[in-house]
């Protein structure tokens, strides 16, 4: 930091990358490749035929339950009755279009250190949205910041991907993170349940668990994409500094030493581990997206490891 830096305004969140750079031709060619790959992964399945949690009149067997008077006699499973002597009614999954909600964290921390996380997040959302649109799913993109929502209306069909691009390009990181408040608003506004892809760095002073739990408790199927920038664990600092939180402005006097930096690295690793461990315990699909990893590789990992599309 030079002498002139003392007189410059403190710049905590840099401007976002322009759309022309973010979704260039190369990006769009990769999207086509990902769409082809997704078709190969889900080959043999019908478009728009997604299993819902509703049990009903579909053709896909889901489960049995005891017969109660009043049930349709045609739904009794007579084979089971012959083998076990019990009257059980066959249940079928109700088929419906899947709703995919992309919840993008647009807080200032996402734009920290050159907006690498925010750019990576927007590319991931665009990619996965394209896969969804290509599978005729209902895709909704929402930007969260300071407990508020900015929304791209629900759309379907891959021709709408440019609308998604424009929406994502218009977003700027800023403000604080309050996942729980934002997601409560989201749940209240969207009665149609579905897959909720939460893309965030989970730097929530209130705790990352609250936001995930809101989705779980409100009946959505949460899918967590955790943006990771390992450079934040190894800042190029030394000596006496005043550490300022880029979102909250919270300050802390620190004398940075190699020992402190080691501890910071360990704390960061622990934090990542906490998020992953929590998701695993709650059976929430979790994907760590490192900013240094190409976005298409992350998307392929998401497609192959499952959880994103059933």
């Amino acid at each position: 930091m030079g002498l002139l830096d003392w007189f410059r305004p403190r710049k905590l969140a840099p401007a976002a990358t322009p759309a022309s750079e973010l979704f260039d031709d190369e990006f769009q060619r990769k999207l086509e490749m990902l769409a082809l790959v997704s078709r190969r992964v889900f080959s043999g399945r019908l478009r728009a035929e997604r299993r819902s949690k509703k049990k009903g009149s579909g053709v896909e067997f889901a489960d049995h339950r005891d017969y109660v008077p009043g049930d349709d006699i045609r739904s009794v499973d007579w084979n089971v009755y012959h083998r076990f002597g019990r009257l059980l009614v066959r249940l079928y999954e109700e088929e419906e279009d899947l709703s995919i909600y992309f919840l993008l964290d647009c807080s200032a921390s996402m734009g920290f250190s050159g907006s690498q996380k925010f750019d990576q997040a927007r590319r991931l959302v665009a990619s996965l949205a394209y896969v969804g649109l290509a599978n005729l799913d209902r895709v909704t993109v929402l930007a969260m910041t300071e407990g508020t929502l900015e929304r791209l209306p629900t759309t379907r069909g891959k021709g709408r991907i440019f609308t998604v691009f424009r929406f994502l390009s218009s977003l700027l990181p800023g403000g604080t993170t309050d996942l729980a408040e934002s997601l409560r608003a989201f749940a209240a506004q969207h009665k149609r349940r579905g897959l909720a892809v939460l893309v965030s760095d989970f730097y929530d002073p209130a705790g990352f668990e609250h936001g995930i739990n809101v989705l779980r408790y409100e009946g959505f199927e949460p899918y967590v994409i955790h943006l990771v920038d390992r450079g934040e664990a190894k800042p190029a600092l030394d000596g006496d500094v005043l550490v300022v939180d880029c979102e909250t402005g919270d300050e802390r006097e620190v004398t940075v030493t190699p020992g402190v930096l080691d501890k910071l690295g360990k704390a960061y690793a622990e934090y990542l581990g906490d998020v992953e461990r929590y998701c695993t315990q709650k059976r929430v699909p979790y994907l760590a997206a490192d900013v240094s990893t190409p976005f298409d590789e992350i998307v392929l990992r998401a497609l192959r490891h499952g959880g994103f599309l059933h």
Partner: peptide, 11 residues
């Protein structure tokens, strides 16, 4: 002290 912005002060 020299102010330095960080992504997440709770860390």
């Amino acid at each position: 002290r020299r102010p330095v912005a960080v992504a997440f002060a709770p860390l």
